[in-house]
C-alpha cells in the first residue's frame, strides 16, 4: 500500500478544530472483508461480507451509512477501527488524513484521533467503574463528563447503574476524551425513544459542527436524514449510492434503484416494501449485487460489477443510474 495524498495537499498537521475548509479525513476505496471459516473436516472457505465499498468522510460532516440490520454495515466500522475478528481478511484501501491507515498507525490513533461510539452500555465491562474504564486519565474523563453535563460522581458508577440518558452521554463522552478527528458511531440509537435518539444525534451534529468527521452507521434512515450531511446507502455489503441528505426529499433526485426503493419504504413516502430480499453473504450474485431485484436491469448487469460514477454531486454504482 503506498501513501497517496488525496485531493489538495492535506497533512495530518492541518487543524480539525473549527469548521474551516473541509478536509478529507477518511477515505475507503474498494474495501473487501471476508471471513475464513472451517467447513467440513479441516477445509476452510471464505465468506465475503463486504465488497467493493467506497466512502469518504470530510471534516465537519456526518456521513450516515444506512442499511438494513444484519447487512454487515457494523463490519465497516470494525474494519476502519481494525477490530475485526482474527479470521477476517481485508483488502482495499483505507486512508486517514490522506495517509494509508496501516495497522501500526491505527494502533497509535485508535482511542485518540479515531474514536468509536458503541451501541449501548453493553459495551462496557459490567465489573468495572465507568470512569476508570473509559480512560485511566481521570482529568480527561472529568473534562469530557463536564462537557456533557455529567456529574463527576457518575465516574464512580458501574455500567448497570447508569440511566438511559446517562449511558448515552457517557458513551459519547468516552469518544471525546482523546480529542478525535474521526468518530465512528455504530448504531448509537437502537431501542431509544425518539426524544432520546434526537438528543444522541444532536451530540454528533455538534461534534461535526466543531470540525470532527463523523461516520454514522445506522438502520434508521429516517432519523439519519435529519442530521446527516450525506447518506451512503448500503446493500449486501457494498455502498450503492452516496447522496447529499437533501436528495432524499424526492425520489427523482436519487440515483440508484435501491435508494429509490428505500425512499418508498419510509413511512412518510408510502411505506411500500420492495419484493425480494438481500442476498446472503456466501450466495452473492455475479455482477451487480442488486441486479436480481432491479426493475431497470439490463442484460449485462449480471456479468460485471458496475463502476462508481458521479452524477449530480452524488456517487452511484449503477450502469443505468439516472
Amino acid at each position: 500500500m503506498s501513501d497517496v495524498n488525496i485531493g489538495p495537499a492535506v497533512g495530518a498537521e492541518v487543524s480539525s478544530e473549527g469548521p474551516g475548509t473541509p478536509i478529507e479525513v477518511l477515505r475507503v476505496e474498494g474495501l473487501e472483508v471476508a471471513f475464513s471459516r472451517y467447513g467440513k473436516g479441516w477445509s476452510r472457505d471464505r465468506l465475503k461480507v463486504i465488497s467493493n465499498l467506497n466512502l469518504t468522510v470530510r471534516s465537519g460532516e456526518i456521513v450516515a451509512v444506512a442499511g438494513s440490520s444484519g447487512s454487515g454495515k457494523s463490519l465497516l466500522a470494525h474494519a476502519v477501527l481494525g477490530i475485526l475478528p482474527r479470521n477476517a481478511h481485508t483488502s482495499g484501501r483505507i486512508n486517514f488524513m490522506g495517509k494509508a491507515l496501516t495497522p501500526a498507525r491505527l494502533k497509535k490513533l485508535r482511542g485518540t484521533r479515531i474514536a468509536f461510539v458503541p451501541q449501548s452500555v453493553e459495551y462496557l465491562d459490567p465489573l468495572m467503574r465507568v470512569g476508570r474504564q473509559i480512560s485511566p486519565d481521570r482529568q480527561a474523563v472529568l473534562a469530557a463528563f463536564e462537557r456533557y453535563r455529567l456529574d463527576p460522581s457518575v465516574a464512580e458508577l458501574y455500567p448497570h447503574q447508569l440511566s438511559g440518558g446517562m449511558a448515552r452521554r457517557v458513551l459519547v463522552a468516552s469518544a471525546v476524551v482523546g480529542d478525535p478527528q474521526l468518530i465512528v458511531a455504530d448504531e448509537p440509537t437502537p431501542g431509544m425513544s425518539k426524544e432520546l435518539a434526537d438528543k444522541a444525534m444532536k451530540h454528533f451534529r455538534d461534534l461535526a459542527d466543531a470540525g470532527v468527521a463523523v461516520l454514522l452507521i445506522t438502520h434508521d434512515i429516517d432519523l439519519a436524514l435529519g442530521y446527516a450531511d450525506r447518506v451512503a446507502v448500503f446493500y449486501a455489503g457494498t455502498t450503492v449510492e452516496t447522496a447529499p441528505a437533501d436528495d432524499f426529499d424526492a425520489r427523482e433526485r436519487l440515483r440508484h434503484p435501491w435508494s429509490q426503493a428505500l425512499w418508498q419504504a419510509i413511512p412518510a413516502n408510502g411505506f411500500q416494501p420492495t419484493p425480494g430480499h438481500q442476498p446472503y453473504a456466501g450466495r452473492l450474485p455475479q455482477g451487480c449485487l442488486y441486479a436480481p431485484r432491479c426493475p431497470r436491469k439490463g442484460h449485462d448487469c449480471g456479468h460485471h460489477a458496475p463502476p462508481t460514477v458521479t452524477i449530480r454531486g452524488g456517487e452511484v454504482s449503477c450502469c443505468y443510474a439516472s
Binding site: 477501527l81 477490530i83 468509536f116 458503541p118 453493553e122 459495551y123 465491562d125 465489573l127 468495572m128
Partner: peptide, 27 residues
C-alpha cells in the same frame, strides 16, 4: 474476549495484554 466490552476496549486502543489484565482477569 469475544464480548462487546472487549471489542470496545480494543476500539479505545487497549492492547491485548491490557485487556487481559483489566477485563479478562476481572471477569
Amino acid at each position: 474476549m469475544s464480548s462487546e466490552y472487549v471489542l470496545f476496549a480494543r476500539a479505545r486502543g487497549k492492547s491485548r495484554f491490557q485487556i487481559l489484565r483489566q477485563h479478562g482477569f476481572r471477569n
